[in-house]
């Protein structure tokens, strides 16, 4: 790419971050009152809303059916999108989200019912899947649905012999390899792994490790936010220790 260097000699990326720095994350639980649970997350310039609803359709006998929908607002990308959902990319994302959360929700506690996870991307600047997973995790916690653990997702890439974490849109579209990982941070288990482009196998473990470490950092931030929210509400409720 002429002009813009993804990683400068001094170790700075296009937006001024260092190789191991995540973008600024801000989040909020309980944005909507009508949904069972909702959350909003901002990862840099990517803004995602997630809402959870429990519905009572008799589908599977012994466990719950997890249903997801991923949609992007038409004004979320630089170029206006024609359709918010229904195109192949969205359907692929929907499927990935569903697989991820099927592994994390304790499904046998909710027989004969369905949990709907709706994700809406308001502004897209790279890392859509990661922000969606993080937002949906927060929304599930807000709804009080039992989870095995948080699900945190992070992306990583490999530029100029060093792995970089949490890539934004410019870095994504530059053609460098991209690895997206979703993990259960406490048990360090990987629930989702995807890689694009070409990467030499010698570098694979380095990049995956970087992404997993990124997930741990994301987990710290999300956990702090959840604890703050719970302690505030519990104080107002008047629950004693």
């Amino acid at each position: 790419m002429a002009g813009l260097e993804l990683l400068s000699d001094q170790g700075f990326r296009i937006d001024g971050r260092r190789v191991h720095e995540l973008r600024k994350i801000q989040c909020r639980l309980g944005v909507f009152s009508q949904a069972d649970g909702s959350a909003y997350i901002e990862q840099g310039n990517t803004k995602v809303l997630a809402a959870i609803r429990g519905s009572k359709q008799k589908t599977l006998h012994d466990k719950v059916l997890v249903n997801c929908q991923y949609s992007m607002a038409t004004f979320s990308t630089g170029e206006r999108k024609r359709r918010p959902r229904g195109d192949r990319k969205s359907q692929e994302m929907t499927m990935h989200l569903r697989q991820t959360f099927d592994a994390a929700i304790l499904t046998n506690l909710y027989p004969r019912s369905q949990i709907d996870i709706f994700v809406e991307v308001l502004q897209s600047d790279g890392g859509n899947y990661c922000a969606s997973v993080n937002a949906a995790t927060l929304a599930l916690i807000d709804a009080g649905i039992p989870l095995k653990d948080y699900v945190c997702a992070c992306s990583a890439s490999f530029v100029n012999d060093s792995p970089i974490v949490d890539i934004n849109y410019l870095e994504e579209s530059s053609g460098k390899p991209e690895i997206i990982v979703a993990t259960l941070p406490k048990s360090e288990q990987i629930v989702f792994l995807e890689m694009n482009s070409r990467l030499h196998e010698d570098n694979l473990s380095k990049v995956v490790d970087t992404a997993v470490k990124g997930c741990k950092d994301v987990y710290q931030i999300l956990d702090t936010a959840v604890r703050d929210h719970v302690s505030q509400v519990a104080t107002v409720h008047g629950w004693e220790n």
Binding site: L147, V226, Q232
Partner: peptide, 15 residues
């Protein structure tokens, strides 16, 4: 959000 929340020691999060 200006309320100072007390430290609730028995607070847990999933996992």
């Amino acid at each position: 959000k200006q309320l100072d929340s007390e430290e609730i020691s028995s607070l847990v999060t999933p996992g």
